[in-house]
Design a protein around this nucleic acid. Structure first.
Lengths: 353, 353
DNA sequence: GCTTAATAAGTGTACGCACACGAATTTTTA
DNA sequence: TAAAAATTCGTGTGCGTACACTTATTAAGC
């Protein structure tokens, strides 16, 4: 193992000088710098991250602003767990992360949580900018205070965010199109069911639908794609009736794609005899969705590894703080196809090496 | 952050004593030990892994014994890359890993490589025990010398290996069955093509076939499953002819499953007009396979993340050596379903967090 | 041309934290 | 009371970081 000392010896300088070259901290003559760089390259020197972290230890203070989850809204549970897991790991590097939760339907709670957050004077912020107007306000304050921030799962444009980590919803939609296509027989028709437009999911669901349609436009233009959209205001029973009526009247519909993470709810609304003739494709491996997957009711779930998204957000910003590693603008997460047969082996809730 | 020093101060002992309690190294009076443990618990002390790793650095010496790869046999390329990547990372922890390669068809070269390996007096060994008899000999020597060893990708039973990391081939076969089933129309027939039985892949391929058939026995007993097996001795042209003849005579065959990692080769043997009517399912994301996937010739590839297998093998044994973390007996790798649409987002050749 | 100040370049080392071993101290045994 | 055994202490080590400090170089002033 090559150490900074080895390099310093070879170049007849002190370790301090080598360190200054390594971190571009200036104050080194061009001649010396060239010499050192050459030796670094030749000996393939790599900074020992262990020693580096130890030496760097200054108490970094992170803050995270994400929607809270509950029984009704499980979507944010997974990223939350990922963030928690990451917190443990980066803790060893002297980084503390405080999580601030808000109600994803209430802009006021968003602002309120931010006020609390900003009081802790964080060195960096991970945030989910769900509300456009309020976010602009928040981000202005962060910019003023020169606090770097990272967007998780909502890609607001036009800001100087360090990076975006999140879904590729359009691509996920394309993938759902492909799977639907592969599962379909000739003359089968397709149905997209979207219930309960909620503020947050709206964008992602829409993109998934766009992607789905895009796939068929390119690969099977003659495909018949139906769409059923229901509002939050409509009662479950009415929705159920409408869906069942629709399916009865359109017996060629054999593939149902549910762009939200609530395919399990949809299953419950469909009569069993109709259900058995359908192939369903949904998103996200929520416990409820996994249940209907395992029962064979749903054929595919497309998972965006939301656990890993949360995890990655924290490790990314931690690396930025500790090692000054600037991340790429966008870090997409893998699109996993989950079936009953590989769910057990898909490690969705776990960092995998 | 609580340090060993804090604990030592509180307990009026030196850091050395605290350290001996932490690592159960003995030589501490029961009274002192109790006192220290109490403070450790009360202050929720956790060892700083960074500092620990740095301090622990004694040059651990690893050795890896795996089959070599070449143009004809790409299977081992991916695990090899994973091992290389892991080597870099664990290098920071003062661990050096030497890789010894052998010819997967030649037991003598296996033994020869091992003789070389054992001369380096490794602290632990990662091995692929392809040859049963020879492995028994090798393992006896490792046991005698009390060198811990880990099996990669070939699960030999009855030995005291630290752990097994590898394929779940049977389960992968089941999954391929499920995908085939989903893609199929009524009365479609299925074909399994196995070329070039080579010694090593034999077991895995066989398990995949068993899994495939098992799936249909349970879910579609009336399915017609054909099998074509070719020997290494037969020329490509003859094989090609046989396959094309078979497909022509069995027009109901619409789904082809290739249990080896050579689905791309099979594609080349099939006439284009026959090919366009087929759905193919293969294994492993070799560059050649990805090419036919992207061309739309192959519908699904099932990936066992062999890169990650190699990677994981090294990190597992490194953690064992450095942090005395005993791994679980078996570490299965995720079964990934890869299509043209999600390949880009599947990170197959990369550690993902 | 020579001195002095100003700046640039480079050095040396304490520090972060846990680890482990020789040395010192205390306790026990003979 | 000496010798042996059991505890406990003190400190060097791993490696990179960063800051205070020293030395070399250049510029300015007379």
């Amino acid at each position: 193992m090559i150490t900074i000392k080895d390099i310093a010896n070879e170049a007849n300088v002190s370790t301090g000088t080598v360190d200054r070259v390594l971190h571009n901290r200036g104050g080194v003559s061009p001649k010396t710098e060239t010499k050192i760089r050459k030796i670094l390259k030749q000996k393939k020197f790599k900074i020992n991250l262990i020693a580096s972290s130890l030496a760097m230890k200054k108490h970094h203070n992170l803050a995270t602003l994400i929607p809270k989850h509950d029984e009704q809204n499980l979507f944010w549970k997974s990223p939350y767990s990922g963030i928690k897991k990451a917190n443990q790991e980066v803790g060893a590097y002297g980084i503390e992360n405080h999580i601030f939760l808000f109600d994803q339907f209430d802009p006021q709670s968003y602002l309120k949580a931010f006020r609390k957050l900003i009081k802790t004077m964080p060195d960096a912020v991970v945030m989910v900018p769900v509300f456009v107007k309020e976010s602009s306000e928040i981000i202005k304050e962060l910019d003023d205070k020169k606090i770097p921030y990272l967007f998780l799962n909502a890609a607001l444009k036009g800001y100087e965010n360090l990076c975006y980590i999140g879904q590729k919803s359009f691509e996920a939609g394309i993938l759902s199109g492909k799977l639907s296509h592969l599962c379909s027989k000739e003359k089968d028709e397709f149905l997209i069911i979207l219930t309960r437009k909620n503020i947050h999911d709206y964008e992602a669901n829409n993109e998934r639908i766009k992607g789905f349609i895009n796939y068929f436009n390119r690969n099977l233009p003659q495909a018949v794609i139906h769409q059923l959209k229901f509002d939050q205001s409509e009662g479950i029973k009415i929705v159920s009736k409408k869906i069942n009526n629709f399916l009865t009247q359109n017996p060629r519909v054999r593939i149902v794609m549910v762009p939200s993470s609530r395919v399990s709810n949809i299953c419950k609304l469909i009569d069993n005899d109709l259900l058995s003739g359908l192939k369903l494709i949904g998103f996200d491996t929520t416990p409820q969705n996994v249940e209907v997957l395992n029962k064979g009711i749903v054929s595919f779930l497309i998972s965006q590894k939301s656990f890993n998204q949360g995890y990655k957000a924290i490790t990314t910003i931690a690396n930025y703080l500790v090692h000054k590693e600037t991340p790429s603008d966008e870090i997409p997460m893998p699109l996993e196809i989950i079936t009953k047969e590989n769910y057990r082996y898909s490690h969705t809730e776990e960092r995998n090496y």
